[in-house]
Amino acid sequence: MIVMYQLTETGVLRLSDLAYIPDCTDNFDWQEYQQWLKEGNKPLPMPVYIDNRIYITNGQARQQRIKREQQAKIKAEALALKKQVETLNTLVMNEV
């Protein structure tokens, strides 16, 4: 079985059984985790919360931020085009 860990604010979460392991040198599980690190393994990053409700990793947060920025840019461009069309329609109607 592959053992994976995820960082938390005060320790790690062992994902195989969802056991919280505090940063405590006397804790056997913490010692096991330290050995796992020495073997060259890397834990998943600490999760972050967006709007106090979405549980995601830092990489996912960055992707969502980029997506929101792109959507805002597209919306702004669409609004600008709509205003241009309205202006052209007004000009055409005034010429008739």
Rank of each mutant, 00 (worst) to 15 (best):
I2L: 12
V3R: 10
M4D: 08
M4V: 07
M4F: 03
Y5Q: 01
L7P: 00
L7W: 02
T8W: 02
E9S: 11
E9R: 07
T10G: 03
T10E: 11
V12K: 00
R14M: 05
D17S: 09
L18G: 00
L18M: 14
Y20F: 14
Y20M: 10
Y20W: 06
I21P: 00
D23M: 09
C24K: 12
T25R: 14
N27H: 08
N27V: 01
D29H: 06
D29I: 02
Q31T: 05
Y33G: 01
Q34P: 02
Q34G: 03
Q34C: 15
Q35F: 04
K38E: 13
E39N: 13
N41Q: 15
N41K: 13
P43Y: 04
P43W: 03
L44C: 04
P45F: 03
V48D: 03
D51S: 09
D51K: 09
I54T: 12
Y55R: 11
N58S: 13
G59F: 02
A61C: 12
A61P: 00
R62M: 09
Q64N: 11
R65M: 12
I66P: 00
I66F: 01
I66H: 03
K67S: 10
K67N: 11
R68H: 08
E69S: 06
E69V: 02
E69Y: 01
E69N: 05
E69T: 02
Q71G: 02
K73I: 11
K75C: 08
K75L: 12
K75T: 08
K75N: 09
A76N: 07
E77D: 15
A78M: 11
A78T: 04
L79Y: 07
A80R: 07
A80Q: 07
L81I: 10
K83E: 14
K83S: 11
K83D: 10
K83A: 15
K83L: 13
Q84L: 14
V85A: 15
L88G: 01
L88M: 12
L88H: 04
N89C: 09
L91E: 13
L91T: 07
L91V: 05
N94P: 00
N94F: 06
E95I: 15
E95P: 00
V96E: 14
V96D: 11
